[in-house]
Design a protein around this nucleic acid. Structure first.
Lengths: 210, 210, 210, 210
DNA sequence: AATGAATGAGTATTCATTCAT
DNA sequence: TATGAATGAATACTCATTCAT
């Protein structure tokens, strides 16, 4: 995303492909060894390019990880709210919509649990990743609170901003727990409980169409 | 090669004090520079002892952080459930109990937000910290689900294990968000929303005494 | 952890020269300070390269010493038996051949007595050096016993394998004593005695041509 | 042997026993881990005394190893020549005497092959051990050459000093090879060859009584 | 006499980054 | 554009030795 002073911006097809090869290799390496266990040389080797080429495209390994995360987040972000809107349109109940959101959230968190770990750890370690995560969080919660306001008639909650955050928190943590740890009860029960909690919290009647 | 690398177990008062000085210095250093930014030398210096002394008491910096975390967790763990039990005994309503738990949770997470960040990052990075956190999580959720079973008459939820986990997740993530990030709405609104969500989820009538 | 720690195989002329510079510097340093008194940094400095370059070419200081020894041994090994064969062909007596072998052995052990000390000590300390020395010993003694079998008519000894070893032992120890210690009688007397002992032991008539 | 400035000279029985415990422990540790792999703390621990006590009796680990070697050598030295003298007196042949010496030499080298390795390596590494070994060597060879002079009538050799050294060298190296390496032919054949070589070298008639 | 806590200089090794080719 | 040899600061950890108790 952020290209500094002497960093090469790939124009030709071959260069773009080379940059993508580096990103893919980095994902694999970060997933295998974590952030601190991975080094630039290892990424370059895995990508089949020289270390010099690595530094031609990225200032350091942190930059490449930020690029990876941006890629990921933009993929996730788009889909979720679109499909929720569609569900509403189809006359789904509150609970059905939440259940669907849980399902979508799950899918988006399970591409690579190992990489997810790395991302999660980095937001507690580094300001840039923290800012990154914070922006993302703000984005999601404000979209959600905006959405809630459009259906305020059906809701029991009145403080939409706070509700949006609390719900997002409950979602995220449960997703991460399922993805990165061994959960102590089956996934389905956990997701059903999450759906139930959020549904009865948000909606006057969770089982009525919106 | 050789095998006389035993860790010193402090017996005399002065030794115990020295070990505690190291722990305190480590907390401060980890808080300031994070795990990877802190080294044994820095901890020793901050504690006013030699590097050799550091290695006499701790095998490495990871060990000292694990020791710090254990110390923290055992402090937190004990108090919460005791006071909940007392509240129940005093005839508090479900909502009052949850509100109280939120308050207590908040207090326990705000000793050192910086150290909390380090702990949270480590659980995604290192097996030992992960195991540590997992044990703690299991401990809390099983205690909670046991408690829920004792008051099952007042509850709307039936799957106590799943409920305990989902509620714990919502709690934890909100606590961490408040402690480590700049929340986007005021803390009180967030905590009120959390209290509300958990209360209406768990209890048949959140405002009746248990 | 990571696996991209490959050892650089020098391709270009300048690299080969750099590797050789390191080997030469190592020989000098090991000779001056012994194995345990020498460190990679000192070798790098003596070679006029950085410590990083040292580790690019050699995994550690042991490896470079093994390389040096291999280089030495292969040089020595070849010449000795060739010239013995030539002497036989020229119609030399047994004693003349032994005397010549002593002379050659002496020459090959006197490149660097200090380095010889290091090599000798290492074979008692480290498995790899021991194996190295053992292979060399086996090689020499089996070549020698093979040679003895080709001239069995002239010999008083019948157990060629045992003879080869005992003779080699007497040779080696005397060479080492002369090279590394201050001998208590003059070298020439010692070598004459050695020649005499081996000659009368091996040959029916030491002063007859083979 | 050499006790410096603040080194304690044990007077009481308990102290002497403590010193001996340290020496025994050191023998075991040096044997197990070699000289450089052993440290003072390890020796103290193995001896069941404190590190302070170690330094009360020995200036460093080198000193204790020198003490061990002195102990060993003095034990060996005495016996060999005495029994040879006795054999001569009994009217043994030259070959019988040599064979007997080989047997005795073998016995004295097989107490602890591991410790022998350490001793042998140290003489190539350290001046003090070298001097030590050199003195021992001089002692043995001069005794031997003195003995040879007493039986000069029976000998083919005339340069007794040189002969004594060459014979000693052959002896030592073969002993060490048998003790520290895996010999490539059976011990008995090797020892018989050694006996034969030395016998025919030294004596006019190896099978006549002296 | 005996202890063992404390010291800190010293060592091997890694890895982000540069730059001549 | 691409390469990869070269750099050297930085780091974790050890161990001989001292000295207050």
């Amino acid at each position: 995303m952020s290209e500094q002073n002497t960093i090469r911006v790939p124009q030709q097809a071959r260069s773009i492909e080379k940059k993508q090869r580096l990103v893919d290799a980095a994902m694999s390496e970060f997933g295998k060894h974590g952030f601190h266990g991975t080094n630039a040389k290892g990424i370059a080797k895995a990508a089949g390019v020289s270390i010099g080429t690595f530094y031609a495209y990225f200032t350091d390994k942190k930059t490449i990880l930020l690029a990876i995360i941006d890629q990921h987040l933009s993929q996730i972000d788009q889909s979720v709210f679109k499909t929720i809107a569609r569900k509403v349109h189809e006359g789904a109940t509150g609970r059905e919509i939440i259940r669907h959101a849980v399902k979508m959230g799950h899918a988006s968190h399970h591409h690579s649990p190992e990489l997810l770990r790395v991302m999660l750890s980095m937001r507690y370690i580094d300001k840039d990743f923290q800012r990154n995560a914070s922006t993302e969080y703000k984005d999601i919660t404000s979209k959600l609170s905006l959405f809630l306001k459009t259906i305020s008639d059906c809701l029991r909650v009145t403080d939409m901003e706070a509700a949006a955050q609390v719900v997002t928190n409950a979602f995220e943590e449960t997703m991460h727990a399922v993805a990165t740890a061994q959960p102590h009860v089956e996934q389905t029960r956990l997701y059903e409980a999450l759906t139930d909690m959020v549904s009865v919290y948000l909606f006057k009647d969770p089982d009525a169409p919106l």
